[in-house]
């Protein structure tokens, strides 16, 4: 089903939309009894129990577009499907129907420090994480000093990651991830990292990225941040878009449904 596939185009600025999501739907099957071994499957066949499951509609008929250079918010209560949407945009999950078009290089920040290995040094982890985020070895080498400076971890470059504090780990992750120079940034509430001064630095970096004309998709529960950063928003509830448009209006509606 070629039309269902997630397509990633080369950056094409003639096309004003960075992201086009068209009639996207995703269902999860939640089995009554989860079978995860061959033994359980065989036992199920012999006892004659039929395979029964409930269908959970995580996303239903989602359509929206995001223009280049826009900061776009996705809000909604817990379990509304925000993260599922973000995962489909990131290419981690396949949609059941509908299409996603992304124009430009994408950097998913669903979690910082993906692939960090405790037994490697900070230096080795920067190269590994950078490669996972799609940077070539050369690119990482040229940005290596900048990464360590930003993370303020120059002294610890040859220390193993397992000896790092969690704050240091997250700083290293953010500093590396931010170097990927993407056209589209997917952010799932990871902005709150490190202590206050590092948070301020992160905020400045995010502003810098916005000013450079990058597209940002922000999923957050922090309405203050959303209001401050996003021009437009969608509100997802029960897998459907129930409000979209100007941030203020959408946040108002969000507060209504929470009441």
């Amino acid at each position: 089903m070629a039309n269902n596939r997630y397509t990633l185009k080369k950056k094409n600025l003639d096309n004003t939309n960075a992201i086009e999501v068209d009639h996207l739907s995703k269902q999860f099957r939640i089995p009554h009894e989860r079978k995860i071994t061959v033994y359980q499957h065989l036992a199920g066949l012999i006892s004659g129990g039929s395979y029964s499951y409930e269908v959970f509609n995580a996303l239903q008929d989602i359509s929206f577009t995001v223009e280049h250079g826009e900061t776009f918010g996705v809000i909604g209560p817990n379990g509304s499907g925000k993260s599922t949407l973000l995962k489909i945009l990131a290419g981690v999950l396949y949609p059941d129907s509908g299409t996603v078009h992304l124009n430009g290089k994408i950097a998913p920040f669903l979690e910082l420090g993906v692939g960090f290995t405790p037994d490697l040094t900070a230096k080795e982890n920067i190269y590994l994480y950078g490669a996972i985020m799609g940077l070539s070895k050369k690119e990482i080498a040229s940005k290596y000093d900048e990464i360590l400076d930003f993370a303020e971890l120059k002294r610890f470059e040859n220390m193993k990651l397992k000896n790092f504090s969690s704050g240091m780990t997250v700083r290293l992750a953010f500093s590396t991830a931010i170097q990927t120079d993407p056209d589209i940034l997917l952010v799932d509430e990871v902005l709150a990292v490190g202590d206050e001064s590092f948070q301020r630095k992160c905020g400045e970096k995010i502003d810098e990225i916005r000013e450079a004309g990058k597209t940002i998709i922000l999923v957050s529960h922090a309405m203050g941040t959303v209001q401050e950063l996003c021009e437009r928003c969608i509100l997802i509830h029960g897998g459907k878009i129930i409000e979209s448009g100007e941030t203020e209006k959408v946040i108002e509606r969000y507060h209504d449904i929470l009441r």
Binding site: V92, P108, L110, V114, G115, I132, M133
Partner: peptide
């Protein structure tokens, strides 16, 4: 995490 948090 390399399967569920990022696409490679």
């Amino acid at each position: 995490s390399l399967v569920t948090k990022i696409y490679i």
